[in-house]
């Protein structure tokens, strides 16, 4: 255990040391060098709010606003960097010359998105288990307590029902998390095609910073292409080169 712990600590301290080095470069305005180091940390599977935030800031200085938005949105998902990332995002969004019309998502889409972003599958499953165990306990108890039989039985069934609802939520959120991703346009502009072919008709144009929902499952069928839903509600195919997805 001590050996494993020391190995883990060594790894963490190595990442921290490289992160510090990249931060120094960032302060010296060597943005690209800093980004290289940040990327190497991320490539090794480590991530943190400050890492994404600083990458977003570095890209902002390089005027790669699409990439900046992408990393700032990632940083926004960490409690420690949420506020700073939101401020930076606001700043970056102001700099885009074109903004997409936004068609509000359907209420249940918003609800599940909220669940995904604010609770997460892990907590939903935990809550579902809590109600499952409590409900099962009450139901079993009702079989042996004749005096409280009715009360215990109805309470048990109710809690099992609540548990089922939470399990369903967790499954839906998990499905959506696995099927859909968030893409940010990083090219200055790119056409959105009706079919995954450049000869296909263009349904819309996506500009740098446009956010879109990427359908992983449909995109699997065509290499180099992503099937997306734009914020204005249009669906189409974009080339994945111009897109960053998380």
């Amino acid at each position: 255990m001590a050996f494993l712990l020391s190995g883990w600590l060594t790894d963490i301290s190595a990442q921290q040391s490289r992160f510090d080095e990249a931060n120094d470069l960032l302060e010296e305005n060597s943005y690209r060098d800093a980004i290289e180091i940040y990327k190497s940390i991320a490539d090794e599977g480590y991530h943190s709010g400050p890492l994404w935030l600083n990458m977003g800031i570095a890209y902002t200085h390089l005027d790669s606003l699409g990439a900046a938005k992408f990393y700032l949105m990632k940083a926004e998902k960490y409690s420690e960097t949420r506020e700073l990332a939101s401020q930076s995002l606001e700043f970056v969004n102001e700099r885009f010359s074109r903004r997409s019309a936004v068609l509000p998502p359907l209420p249940w889409d918003r609800f599940f998105q909220w669940l995904s972003e604010n609770i997460g599958v892990g907590w939903l499953v935990f809550i579902a288990f809590f109600f499952l165990y409590t409900g099962a306990g009450l139901l079993i108890w009702s079989w042996f307590r004749y005096d409280l039989h009715k009360l215990l039985r109805y309470s048990g069934y109710s809690l099992l029902g609540v548990s089922l609802v939470f399990f369903s939520f967790s499954l839906i959120v998990n499905y959506q998390d696995n099927r859909y991703g968030t893409g940010v346009m990083v090219d200055r502009q790119g056409p959105v095609y009706e079919q995954p072919q450049e000869a296909s008709s263009v349904v819309s144009t996506a500009y740098e910073g446009y956010i879109m929902r990427v359908d992983y499952r449909r995109s699997e069928e065509h290499a180099d292409w992503k099937y997306v839903r734009l914020e204005n509600g249009m669906y189409g195919w974009v080339k994945q080169d111009g897109l960053m997805v998380f």
Binding site: N23, I57, T60, V125, N178
Partner: peptide
């Protein structure tokens, strides 16, 4: 115009996570 006064990088100790997490299911 563009000097982003609001863009403050975070330095110092960061909380590192490893991204190899599996689905709960």
């Amino acid at each position: 115009d563009y000097q982003p006064v609001r863009l403050q990088p975070v330095t110092g100790l960061a909380v590192w996570k490893n991204s190899g997490s599996r689905s709960v299911f």
